[in-house]
Amino acid sequence: MNSIASPDLRGRPQADEPAPFLTLVNLIWDEKHIEHWIRFGHEDYRQHLDPQRSIVGFAPGRIIAFVRWAGNDHGTVASRLDVLRTVGRGERCQTVPFVRPGAEILLRQSGWPKVERVLLAIDAIEALGLDPSDVSPDHWRHLHNRLTAGEEPRSYTRAQHIAWLKRREVQP
């Protein structure tokens, strides 16, 4: 995989290089074979490597959903969806394939039935007129835990969202 351009002799980023401390995600789109895409999240950087590959970058603290799917002539081979919180310099993080340096994993599901449940939950949040990247991280953890345990998760509500926004205002 091609790497991002290196700094010039003075250590400054070149024009096609991301700002420091971004979380970088490698995206691939080889239709019906390998598909990696961002389901939601506000990107701060994008570099197209070729028609099938690009790199997107996210500032620290962003919430994103990263979907990885692989298939062959017989159908789906693997599917995974991760909801991640991007980290800043010096923060602890977990490693995630195709994500540099890593991120805080809020939700991790694999296998089409569970991935589909998460996609439906994201659709339900959007149907409320909410941006999934603004949803409380606790909701993504709840969804992860309930799906992992085979239990029915609670739906995200406007009241929860309002409470989360107020809590976020007073957190240091």
Rank of each mutant, 00 (worst) to 15 (best):
A59F: 09
A70R: 15
W29H: 12
G111T: 00
L147C: 01
P132C: 11
V87M: 09
V83Y: 10
A163N: 08
V56L: 06
I38M: 13
I125D: 01
S155R: 13
T86P: 08
H74D: 15
S79Y: 00
P113R: 07
S54P: 03
G75R: 01
A5D: 10
R53Y: 03
L128H: 14
H33Q: 15
I64H: 00
V25R: 04
L9E: 12
I64S: 00
L24S: 06
V99M: 05
G129K: 01
G90C: 01
F21G: 07
D44E: 12
R12C: 03
H36P: 00
M1Q: 11
L81P: 00
E31K: 14
T148A: 13
P113D: 08
R46C: 11
P132A: 10
R46W: 00
G61E: 02
L107P: 14
E35M: 13
Q160D: 13
A149Q: 13
Y156I: 06
T95E: 15
I4Y: 00
E17S: 15
R117S: 15
D30K: 12
G11N: 12
N72S: 14
P7V: 14
E17R: 10
L24T: 11
F40I: 07
A124I: 02
L49P: 01
N2M: 10
H48L: 09
V87K: 09
R117F: 05
K114W: 00
P20N: 04
L27G: 14
H144M: 02
I125Q: 04
R12G: 02
P7C: 14
R80C: 02
F98C: 08
P172C: 00
T86K: 05
I34A: 12
S6T: 09
W69Y: 06
R62W: 04
D30E: 14
T95D: 12
P172G: 03
G11I: 02
I105E: 03
T86W: 07
G75Y: 02
F21D: 15
D138V: 01
V96S: 03
P132G: 10
R80L: 01
L9V: 13
N72I: 05
R167M: 09
L120C: 09
R141M: 04
N26D: 11
R92L: 12
G111C: 01
S3R: 02
A124V: 06
H33K: 15
A59D: 11
L49R: 11
R62F: 04
Y45N: 06
R46N: 05
H144F: 11
R158K: 12
G75P: 02
I34F: 07
R167H: 15
I38P: 04
R10F: 15
P153R: 01
F58V: 08
E43I: 00
E152D: 14
S110L: 05
V170K: 13
R46V: 08
V83P: 09
P7I: 09
F58K: 06
L84Q: 06
L81V: 07
E116W: 08
P101V: 05
G88H: 08
D30S: 08
E104I: 13
N2L: 12
V25C: 10
L119E: 12
V118P: 03
Q94K: 10
Q52I: 05
K114H: 03
P60N: 03
I38D: 01
E91R: 10
W69F: 07
L9Y: 08
F98T: 01
